[in-house]
Simulated assay, not measured.
Amino acid sequence: MLFLLTGEVQIGKTRWLESLVAELGAFGVPCAGVLAPGQWVPSTGPHADANGFEKLGIDNVLLPSGERIPFARRGDLARADGTFDEESRAAKAELAWHIDDAAIDRVNAHFDEITAHASAAAPVGAKPHSERSAEGAESKDPSRAPGLLIVDELGRLEIWRGGGLTSAMALLAQGPTPVFPHALAVVRDYLLDDTEALLAEAWPDRCRISPDDTGRAVILSACEFGA
């Protein structure tokens, strides 16, 4: 199943995901991929939200290691401090966030590592999770336990331009596998239809979810745990 997590800007999608990853880990369900928490500071300026915080940038947290790398900086701030690169992929796409090309390459390398590990852990002919669980022995190995692939998030670079997190898109394009029978991608609402069109063949079973108790219950049920 492919879960497409969507919702309004700054409603806590990544915080919700962080909690979900912790809960799945407690159940023995490994999560791999990337989370994208924001860099927030208290603020009373024009960019402050209703709670008095301003978003300066976005980190990427690589799962399962937890390595955190700076990923994006607000465009106006990048221009002000001289780090804006007019030749970068993000600049050419006219994104509001300036994403360093080296950061994109690092995250793509991470997804390449996940792909290689998944291929090594799931030889051709591997049995579905339900059969392995019934037999018992193989499902006890955490390195081979079926997990959830997470991509936070797919944006205009990936969906409209075929760029950005290309390795994540390539892994998603494989569809469900013994290692990752389920995947979750964070997608803005205006990109949902195009995202589904790109991944329809690979993931005929798809579900749009919100960062709430219903979305949580749907994922836990798919991972064979009750809500």
Rank of each mutant, 00 (worst) to 15 (best):
F3T: 11
L5P: 09
G7N: 10
G7W: 13
V9R: 05
L17G: 01
L20C: 08
L20V: 09
L20A: 06
A22Y: 11
L24Y: 09
P30T: 08
L35E: 01
P37C: 10
P37S: 10
Q39S: 15
W40P: 13
P46I: 14
A48D: 14
A50L: 11
N51D: 15
G52W: 15
F53M: 15
K55F: 10
D59L: 14
V61Q: 10
P70K: 14
F71S: 06
F71Y: 14
R73P: 04
R74C: 06
D76A: 15
L77H: 03
A78W: 09
G82Y: 04
T83L: 00
T83C: 04
T83E: 01
F84K: 01
R89M: 12
A90L: 04
A91E: 06
K92A: 08
A93N: 08
H98Q: 03
I99M: 02
D100M: 01
A102V: 00
A103W: 03
A103R: 02
R106W: 02
N108C: 06
H110Q: 07
F111V: 07
D112H: 08
E113D: 13
A116D: 12
H117P: 03
A122Y: 02
A122V: 02
V124R: 08
V124F: 06
G125D: 05
A126M: 11
P128Y: 03
A137Y: 03
P142D: 06
R144I: 08
P146M: 03
P146V: 10
G147C: 05
L149T: 04
I150C: 02
V151S: 13
D152R: 11
D152I: 05
L154T: 00
G155V: 11
G155R: 10
G155I: 12
G155D: 08
G155S: 10
L157A: 11
E158S: 11
L165W: 06
T166Q: 10
T166S: 14
A168F: 12
A168W: 08
A170D: 13
L172C: 06
A173G: 12
Q174S: 10
G175A: 09
T177V: 02
T177Q: 01
F180L: 04
F180P: 03
P181Q: 02
P181S: 01
H182T: 00
A183N: 00
L184E: 04
L184F: 09
A185T: 02
V187A: 01
R188T: 08
D189Q: 09
L191C: 06
D193I: 12
D194H: 04
T195L: 00
L199N: 05
L199K: 06
E201R: 14
W203H: 01
D205L: 07
R206G: 00
C207L: 04
C207K: 04
R208T: 11
G215L: 08
R216E: 00
V218W: 11
A222M: 01
A222R: 00
C223Y: 01
G226N: 03
A227T: 08
